[in-house]
């Protein structure tokens, strides 16, 4: 309870003193979860790392992933300036943010983190996860493309990669 109060407080302060909170961001770092969405909008991997967000059922996660897939497509069409726009890359709430990496094949990697997490380290992390996905999932002859990922090796590697940022 006190923790949410503290995070709320820093959120309001951050709008006024951005310079001040930039020094605080190291205190409130957390990775809440990782999703992998296939090119059809189906959730093929979902994992939670830290408390702080609601515990949802797998069905609810499926619905949310589908919604996000749709929103991502629409946001790329709403650009007010001429030229191509990507879909939503970062979506921010008050106590967490959603970062999206869209790969060339249409697979989306979604990372839920605390809002203070710097964008650069999230990008690095998402790229690492993508590499791991290529190595441990796509190179696995027993994996069916576009189907849920059930791979212990992938699980372990994700655990190791995210540890570096979580500690």
């Amino acid at each position: 309870m006190t923790l949410t109060l503290i995070t709320r407080r820093t959120r309001t302060l951050s709008e006024i003193f951005t310079w001040w909170t930039s020094s605080l961001q190291f205190i409130f770092m957390a990775i809440f979860g990782l999703w992998v969405i296939n090119k059809a909008g189906g959730l093929v991997y979902q994992r939670s790392f830290a408390d702080g967000l609601a515990q949802l059922t797998s069905n609810e996660y499926l619905v949310l992933a589908g919604t996000l897939h749709g929103i991502h497509a629409i946001t790329s069409r709403l650009s007010p300036i001429p030229g191509q726009s990507s879909g939503a890359q970062v979506i921010e709430g008050e106590t967490f943010k959603i970062s999206v990496l869209l790969t060339l094949t249409g697979t989306k990697f979604i990372l839920l983190t605390s809002p203070a997490e710097p964008a650069s380290s999230i990008d690095v992390l998402l790229q690492k996860i993508y590499t791991t996905y290529a190595e441990k999932v796509m190179q696995n002859p027993f994996h069916t493309p576009e189907m849920p990922i059930r791979s212990e090796a992938f699980d372990d590697w994700i655990h190791i990669i995210t540890l570096s940022l979580r500690s």
Partner: peptide, 10 residues
């Protein structure tokens, strides 16, 4: 509350 989202263009 939802605050904002960002794409490459806006």
């Amino acid at each position: 509350q939802f605050l904002n989202y960002r794409t490459s263009a806006y």
